[in-house]
Structures are given as structure tokens and as C-alpha cells.
Design a protein around this nucleic acid. Structure first.
Lengths: 109, 109
DNA sequence: TACCGGTACCTAGTTCTACTATGTAGTGGT
DNA sequence: ACCACTACATAGTAGAACTAGGTACCGGTA
């Protein structure tokens, strides 16, 4: 992965995953696949699992274990109220930052 | 500073500073002030100086020392060819990421 | 039976970047 | 003599993504 992208994902990847979970529960492997389909082709699998552990420990998601037809049991993550709150703050922070940056771009800077 | 913003600045602050330097040389204290005026009120001064050391070592800027009327000599930074190239890559990376994220927002996710 | 690919999860150690906290200096005003 | 403002610098810390593995379940096939 490009070094720039790696650094830029810090602080945004968590928001991206929370956004993916909005209105639709998902498990780790599925989330990794989803991210890859959305163009984040180089996201490391380990990164996603580590992030999921983190947001679970922060209490942003609820977890349920479900059997799989094709392999080991899945850990299905659902956004809870606190997660929605965090996602909301993410959008606020993102709006501010992207607003500032787009301003710089417009100024031809 | 909010923890979210701190993390989100990783990878973007460098681009922001390079953008600020486009077409206008500037010194550290000035850049800090500029950032604060643009709404990044809580950027730590030390963060800016550390970043400037970094981009100088990466060879993205040229540096010139100029006397100041009001204090110690200033280190004036100018974007060079390699810096312009890096800034260009920054805009590409940024465009991709913000495109993906805005897509998620549109989907109500 | 043995192997392999796909599914599924997990983690120790590394790297990079922003922050905290603090220090050093020059200048002008009181 | 002191203080505020200007101006630069850095050692140590925290947080997040990556590297580079490992474990385990299942079906197909040689």
C-alpha cells in the first residue's frame, strides 16, 4: 500500500468501518471483502481484525457468534447506540477537515 | 484536540502544509499561525516544527535562513520540484479516499 | 488418505505521525 | 529586571495501520 494512503487511513478507517456497519451487521472477513470491493484493495486483513477488536473494546459495537457453512464460526458485529454516536462525531470531524482541505485545493494551493 | 482529529491529521497535515507552501514560501511560526487562522486552532507548535524537519529531510522543500526584525532568524521553506510531485500524489490519494468516504455518506451509511 | 484452496479469526512486533512538555534565543516595552 | 511576543527545537509518549506470521474448519480432488 502506498505510504501516503496508510497514513491517511489512520483515523478514517475506523469511521469507514462504522459507516459500513450502519443498518447492516457484518463479520470481519466480510468487511475485509467489502473494503476490497470498494477500492481499498490493499487493506491488510490483520488491520481489519485489530480494528474490530478495538471498536468492540470501546463499546461501539455488539458482537454475536454465528456458525458458518464454509469455515470457522463468524463474529458478527452490529453498530450500537454508542457506535452511532461515534460515527456521528466522525462525520463532523471529517466534514471540517475535508472542508478545509477542499478550500486549499480551490485556492490552487 | 479531539482524539479523532489527531488521528485524522496523520497523513493529511503534511499535505496541508505542502499546499500552504504552494506559490508562497513561509517559515514555521508563520505556518503555525496560518493553520490556526484556517481553523486548526489546536495544532501544537511542536507538531509543525517536527513536520518541517521531516519534509526537509525528505527533500520536499528548500530552506533559507532570513533575519527577523522581531526575534531569532526565520527558516523560510520553499516547495521544490520533488515537493510539488509529492503534493500531486497527495491530491490523488486524497481524491480517492474522500471519494470513497463521500460515497459511504451518500448511501446513508 | 493426504493435500490444497477458500473461509474465518487472531496477534506480536514494527513503523510512522501527532501530541505533550519543555527548553533556548532574540527583540521591544515598562 | 522582567515580561510578552516572536521563533525554533526535541525527547518521550500514544495511537493506528502494517508485516508476517499462526490457528482452525470445510470441501474437493489426486
Amino acid at each position: 500500500m502506498g505510504k501516503q494512503m496508510t497514513e491517511m487511513l489512520k483515523g478514517t478507517l475506523e469511521g469507514i468501518v462504522l459507516a459500513l456497519l450502519t443498518g447492516k451487521a457484518a463479520y470481519g472477513y466480510e468487511i475485509t471483502t467489502l473494503l476490497r470491493e470498494q477500492g481499498f484493495t490493499e487493506i491488510a486483513e490483520g488491520t481489519v481484525y485489530a480494528l474490530l477488536v478495538r471498536i468492540e473494546q470501546k463499546g461501539l459495537v455488539d458482537v454475536e457468534k454465528r456458525p458458518s457453512e464454509k469455515g470457522p464460526p463468524r463474529k458478527v458485529y452490529t453498530l450500537n447506540t454508542q457506535g452511532e454516536k461515534e460515527l456521528n462525531e466522525f462525520w463532523n470531524t471529517w466534514s471540517f477537515l475535508s472542508g478545509r482541505i477542499e478550500e486549499l485545493r480551490k485556492e490552487g494551493k
